[in-house]
Design a protein around this nucleic acid. Structure first.
Lengths: 185, 185, 185, 185
DNA sequence: GATGAATGAGCCTTCATTCAT
DNA sequence: GATGAATGAAGGCTCATTCAT
């Protein structure tokens, strides 16, 4: 049952991340539970509150950012330019915007220590990577990790489906624009 | 009496637009009524439902886009480049993102005819302007009005205050990036 | 409608007081709303939270205590002994126990200022009355208002109905016991 | 193994009794299980429902009342007065009020046969004891066992901590009052 | 016509109870 | 037999919308 439970928790987390990404932050926990095919109380056993669930999803996203960073760092020596582009596209794929959305009821979301600690560590590593990239002239030297993350978050914030349908390539274009800008001295 | 009523409706509209921009789409109608210094029932007399209010605000925004377009068109002869930049910055000032946010419960928002008609007219005029600008090499020739509008909407979507505090110039940078991209052949 | 609303608020308050007294503190707000013949949201319009409703009921009870005190003070000159007994019996009739019960989830109930202010004023007046009574040898000189109130609260705490049925006169006896004790030097 | 199981059941029972006494009737079964250092399912294996647990605790209390009675009966010959006072103080120490509280959701608690049988037996023995005591002029002749039990239950009902802090000796005083009353012809 | 009050549906959360290992 | 996990029903509370003055 241990394995079963872990798997279920994973499913809830994944489903939550999907739904935050797809339908924005005002998705109900009931909806997440249903999508995960569990009762609402099971969701609560795994995540003690809505805030806790958001924290868990955030940590999950941060872990993915870490992974993307590691990959990028390994790729720098081969081609800094390509490593940077890869990294950005990887981050775009993570739906960071969904978290910006989920986190920000525009009201005060005070990230708990677990999050800020992980966040700070990741941002530090990211800034290190950026320094190396700047050294290789792959990015402008005044670019900061936090800016990059937030920028990608802004660009990938969940959109009403209608909008996505009408302008399907727009986000790609904006990412291109950001990439171009990020490289300018 | 007529004037009084019109003024009141105007105030509600303005206040709603402000609040959508400042506090995002989950602002309550009670809050809007209070900010407008009218009873909730008066708000409902003027706008039959939340959706209707959003429609009205959207039309208001579209009117402002029209005005910005007119201004731009007048300025093209003097300097197409400057006219384009001015137009974009004007649109950024309109908080288009607030509407993207208000409209998009991500769920099905079917714009009513009034909106699509106005929208289509404005988009047409916008596309005309873009054509002229492209002719003067002020923007890339494949840029479309809808893309521009949505792009600026994405960039100016209301952010959690914390994020604005941490990366205060980011939106400006992204607008710069978009401008640069929009000019490339 | 003003009058109507005030009356409705009064009805909710009264009904809440009754139900707290009859069924104890874990009565649901839905039940109170239903007994008051209003929707749950109306209850919430009048009392912003469960805590607020309890506060209101408490203030209502305190007002009744004040009235009982005034009556007692007027009656002292005629017969201190009778005045004291009257006062105690009056307080017993107020169902103070219901409030002890409602207030005390055993967890921390921090009385808001409105309550403590009213409480303190009433206790002060009560202690004055007790001093006068002690002076006339109608009560023991070491008796304090707070003790009296709490004692009567304990004696009149809502009981399971079964218990009330089996020992119908018990509370009267306990009140007699308290009265006798209160008079001993 | 048998002994182990019995001990575990005993521990749950004791812990439940403690927690009912300390934190009132709205303690959760999870909390009781945790305090007993068993899983919730184990608690359920031993006591099929919350009601059953309350029954068991009640029987446990009744057994303690029996013990107190036996002690009292043995002490009567030496000094009826002292025996009576001892008995009352013993009963006060049993936290009968916690049970009144746990039992009484004020809603219909229909004591199951096991309880009524034990209860009736104990009440009978208690009434016998009272008769003997009355014969020795140690208590009033119209005092009944059920009244005594319920009275002590009322006086020892768990109070909000704040109240206990403010009037620490009150329960003692009320017990004194009851004792005095119980002796009057 | 403007207002405050009323309403029910829906959300987050807890808890007694059952199930599967 | 003991355990942790799963569940649904219910409670406190909010909000878009309607009603009565």
């Amino acid at each position: 049952m241990r394995a079963d439970a872990a798997q279920r928790q994973r499913r809830i987390l994944t489903e939550a991340r999907h739904l935050f990404a797809e339908r924005g932050h005002d998705i109900s926990l009931d909806a997440i539970a249903e999508a995960s095919e569990v009762g609402i109380a099971t969701l609560y056993r795994n995540f003690a509150s809505r805030a806790d669930l958001i924290v868990a999803v955030t940590l999950d996203v941060i872990a993915d950012i870490e992974a993307a960073l590691a990959q990028a760092q390994a790729a720098i020596t081969a081609s800094p330019q390509r490593a940077w582009e890869q990294l950005v596209r990887e981050l775009v794929g993570l739906n960071l915007g969904a978290m910006t959305d989920a986190v920000g009821d525009a009201s005060g979301w005070n990230a708990p220590p677990e999050v800020t600690v992980a966040q700070d560590a990741t941002l530090k590593r990211f800034d290190d990577t950026l320094r190396t990239l700047a050294h290789h002239d792959a990015v402008r030297s005044d670019l900061r990790a936090i800016e990059t993350i937030v920028a990608i978050g802004i660009l990938t914030r969940p959109q009403p489906e209608a909008i996505q349908r009408i302008t399907p390539h727009l986000v790609d274009h904006l990412v291109d624009a950001f990439l171009a800008w990020s490289r300018r001295a």
